[in-house]
Computed example of a mutant assay.
Amino acid sequence: MAKKITRQTLEQLATSFAALSKEEQHTYIGGGIIVVDCNGAVISDNSILSKISAYQQMSDESDKTYWVVYDPKRGGSTPFATNGSISNKSTADPNVCFDGYPITDISGTAVTKELLAYLAERTKVEWGAMIDSTGNRGGRLYSSGLSMAVYRPSDLQGGYDLSYHTHPFFDPHSETEPSYKLSESDRDLAEEDAKKGVKKSAYYDAESNQWVVYQGSAGKGEVQYGFHRTSPAGLSEDW
């Protein structure tokens, strides 16, 4: 026999289950803000966050997550909004990490291709992301804090069909390799990914502001590798 639900029963439930905190709500439905520095690390220092007006004034839009890049000399960048939420984020101390260890690892439905372009134009490091185009799993964003490489998390599993990474803006006065170069390791990884169901591999070239597809077919707003031109553009003006 079904038990009748009374007002008293509902009141008992209300006292038994505490309301979700603001941060927990952001985790499940969005409305949070992620601040990273120019080296790809997530910032949690309140003395820095208090300097960012966007962090203080951000509205609690339940369907969006805001992203800001903080530079000590320039302050916070113009906030960038993506739909969705963040289910996990972590940052390790780069001073105690070995090469190849992801310093920053963020996952959730708020991880998007457009977000990578935003980060590529405002940070000094490479970023990588695996994304599920169906939206069921969202994406996983990571950075190793390196300007010429990005390593995937060791526990990264399948189920993603889009593979993206970024090449930061190339300083013409630097002796490092130009940002539009594609390494052999990029090609090898793309071949492995294709065997696992990844249908497209592409990188964002911050020097020419282009998405370059090197495995799979280029779509709208993208170019096929080998058929793009570079023209130094520098950082965006809307910092």
Rank of each mutant, 00 (worst) to 15 (best):
D93E: 06
C97P: 02
A81Y: 10
I86A: 03
C97D: 01
T91L: 10
D71M: 04
P79L: 05
G76L: 04
Y70G: 01
P94K: 01
A81V: 04
D93Y: 02
S87M: 11
V96Y: 11
W67I: 08
P79A: 04
G100I: 03
N83G: 10
V69E: 03
V68P: 04
F80H: 14
T78H: 06
K73F: 08
A81N: 11
D99F: 12
S85C: 14
K89M: 14
N95L: 10
A92L: 15
S85L: 01
A92S: 15
T82D: 04
K73T: 10
P72V: 00
F98V: 09
K89T: 09
D71Y: 03
S77G: 07
S87Q: 13
N95G: 04
V68S: 06
N95S: 14
P94Q: 02
K89G: 08
N83P: 05
V96D: 11
T91I: 09
S87E: 13
Y66T: 12
S90D: 14
T91F: 09
W67Q: 08
T82V: 08
G100A: 06
P94E: 03
G100Q: 05
A81H: 08
F80Q: 10
S77Q: 02
D99N: 12
F98D: 15
F80T: 05
K73P: 04
P79H: 03
K89I: 11
S90N: 13
F80V: 10
R74D: 06
S77V: 11
R74C: 06
S87P: 02
D99I: 10
D71A: 09
W67C: 05
G100D: 05
Y70P: 05
V96A: 10
G100Y: 09
P79Y: 07
V68Q: 05
V69F: 07
T82M: 13
V96I: 13
V69D: 05
Y66C: 12
A92Q: 14
S87T: 13
K73V: 10
C97T: 01
G75K: 00
N88H: 15
N95A: 12
F98Q: 14
P79Q: 09
G100C: 01
D93K: 00
P72M: 01
F98N: 13
Y66P: 04
P94A: 01
